[in-house]
Simulated scan of single mutants.
Amino acid sequence: MPKNKTPSQTGFTYIELLIALSIGLIIIAAVLQVLYHNAGSVKRQSAHADLQDTMVFSINFVKKQIRKAGMGAKANHQHSGHILKQDTVYGGIVMTAPNQAFGSIDNAVSTNLHGIRLGNAAVPKRLLSRSAVGSSNVLQQKSDQLTILYLMPNSGHYDCQGRGIPKGYYVIERYFVRKDKNATALACASSNFKVVAKRMEDITQWVDISVYTKPNGKTVKSYFSGRGSVIIPNVDYFRVMYGVSDMDNDSQANEDAVNTIEYIAANNAEQAQGFDELNKRIVSVRFGLLMHSQINQVNAFKKQLPHPQDRFKVLDKQNLMLNTKQDMGNFNRQVLESTILLRNARAIY
């Protein structure tokens, strides 16, 4: 009787399993790479869109506010209110303030903040338009500060901190970079005040800008010298330059003023040295911002820091480098620059 034959057994050999496993790992790696790349692209696109949104909405607001500077400037014994200089009373760019805020007002000496005090003291120079006084994420550079002043002739308007402005009140606003949580941001601190006198020579009473007057007439503390309100988040550096012209009277054409503009920066001197020496009128403001996105593009596997050789140009400042001693993250960064022509610095016919 024939013996029963053992049925043959089939399956994968060890080599075949290794080959299949290798192919599977290659496919999985390729899929993961695609997913990782797509996730990175989404983050980069989101960071770029976030930065663009900030630039479109916030920057337009700042430009709109600065464009008001100079409205309501008063004439002094040297020139009319249409020529904005470092001594124009309530001039649009605030660079000078009285050295004292007590006793009678000397109308023979004019400053931007003529007859203005802060509490029981003179307005300190550190609150005026100055260069290199604020926070910055740029190596060996501090951010500038811009202080403007304007008159609001109509009701229904708001200052940079979102507070209603009573009709016929002046508004003073200070733009500067400060710490904001784990980043830096462009902030604005403001106050408003009422001036009864129509001419500089008629100013006899000191006005206190440490208080803010609400539309209902109630006064509250303004905190003009405080931290203010954030208007543009994630600002690494803020630079301001001022367009000056040789024009010194109201009869010259606006086109000539534009053609003779040169841009200079303020400094930290007690008075705006350079403007005093040049004795030029301020006709425009140019500002630049180095900004970064809210969304960090760092990947899930390796934290990336800004390359130490990354360089930026903001107005006249070239080869700016981030301070890599701090954890700057891997954000999308972009420089934005804008030039604003001041209305009251031009001739009016």
Rank of each mutant, 00 (worst) to 15 (best):
L118F: 13
L25H: 01
V109G: 00
Q205N: 13
R67N: 14
Q309K: 13
T219G: 05
P306K: 07
F102R: 14
H114I: 03
K181G: 09
A73I: 01
A189K: 02
A47K: 02
R44N: 11
G11K: 07
S8L: 10
A345M: 07
C188E: 05
A187N: 13
Q334Y: 06
A97M: 10
V62H: 03
S191C: 07
I203G: 04
E173A: 15
V138C: 05
K181F: 13
Y14I: 15
M55W: 02
A97L: 10
A30F: 13
L151R: 04
A20Q: 08
R174N: 13
F61D: 08
R44Y: 07
L305G: 00
K280M: 11
P166S: 12
L342A: 06
Q205E: 09
M241K: 11
V109K: 14
G91M: 03
I209D: 04
I59G: 11
A73N: 05
H79I: 07
R343S: 09
K280R: 15
V196A: 09
T13A: 07
S143G: 00
L149I: 10
C188P: 06
H307D: 13
K181C: 02
V258F: 07
G156H: 11
L84G: 08
Q33G: 15
Q100W: 06
A132L: 11
D316T: 15
A185E: 01
H292D: 03
S110Q: 10
Q326R: 12
A266L: 05
T96F: 06
F61G: 10
R126D: 13
N323H: 07
M328I: 07
A253M: 06
T147D: 01
R227G: 10
D250M: 06
L151Y: 12
V285D: 02
L149H: 08
M95D: 02
G228V: 13
S210W: 09
F224T: 01
V298E: 12
I19A: 09
D256H: 09
I15G: 08
P215Y: 08
V298D: 15
S8N: 07
A197F: 00
Q273V: 11
L25A: 15
V42C: 04
Q145G: 00
K280Q: 14
K325G: 13
G243Q: 05
M321A: 10
Y237R: 02
R286L: 03
N330K: 10
A257T: 10
K43E: 06
R130W: 07
Q145T: 11
F57G: 03
P98V: 11
V298S: 14
L17I: 14
F312T: 03
G243L: 01
E173C: 04
V31P: 03
N234W: 04
E255S: 15
T204A: 13
S80P: 01
V196Q: 08
N216P: 11
E201P: 02
G92E: 04
P2E: 14
H79R: 08
Y175M: 03
N112Q: 04
K3M: 11
H77P: 03
V258S: 04
D144Q: 00
K214G: 03
F102M: 12
A253Q: 10
P215F: 09
N344D: 09
N332G: 02
S131P: 00
Y36I: 14
D256V: 12
A75P: 06
S155P: 00
A269F: 12
I203R: 05
I295M: 11
G81I: 10
V335N: 00
G164V: 12
V56W: 07
C160E: 07
L113Q: 06
F57M: 05
E255A: 15
M95L: 08
G168D: 10
